[in-house]
């Protein structure tokens, strides 16, 4: 093989490897960017859920002579006309603790401990984020406060 041909082959090989290295760099950069965007999306969903947890209590707050008492009025949980998207919202009483979970309906209130305030699931959404927060539950019939947990399930 002539010397020029050898050098030509050499140059082609070097160019080929440099293209591979640059392609590798582009692929890695794409993966990194895609990962960052997914993380931002997840962070946004978490923050959205946290805001919902805080705002939710305002809709069902127990007020005494107009003054907010920082508790969820359990009698209001049955009357909910708001739309929260694809979510499930539950309120469960954690203290006093009870052995069985009794879903609250109008006919068994307040002898129950688990409220399904909103339930809108979509079978096509396979993933969910769950966040919960302790809340104070007020039972107006017995004028007492119990401890509960408000849980939001966000489907996506």
């Amino acid at each position: 093989m002539k010397k020029g041909e050898v050098q030509l082959h050499e140059s082609i090989l070097v160019t080929f490897f440099i293209i591979i290295i640059i392609s590798l760099g582009i692929v890695l950069y794409y993966k990194f960017t895609s990962n960052s965007i997914d993380n931002y999306e997840m962070e946004y969903k978490q923050q959205q859920l946290t805001s919902s947890l805080i705002i939710f209590q305002n809709f069902f707050e127990y007020t005494n002579l107009g003054e907010p008492m920082n508790a969820v009025d359990t009698s209001k949980l049955f009357y909910n006309n708001l739309y929260y998207g694809f979510r499930t919202i539950t309120v469960e009483q954690v203290y006093p603790a009870q052995n069985d979970e009794i879903k609250c309906e109008l006919n068994n209130y307040p002898e129950c401990n688990y409220f399904v305030v909103y339930d809108n699931q979509n079978t096509r959404m396979k993933n969910k984020i769950v966040q919960s927060i302790p809340v104070s539950l007020y039972y107006p019939l017995s004028n007492e406060y119990k401890l509960g947990r408000l849980t939001f399930y966000l489907y996506y």
Partner: peptide, 20 residues
């Protein structure tokens, strides 16, 4: 994320102290 922890801690403290 510590902001959610702080919100939870505040909510837990207030709820527990209020419980009968």
């Amino acid at each position: 994320d510590n902001s959610l922890l702080k919100i939870k801690a505040n909510a837990l403290r207030a709820s527990i102290l209020k419980t009968d």
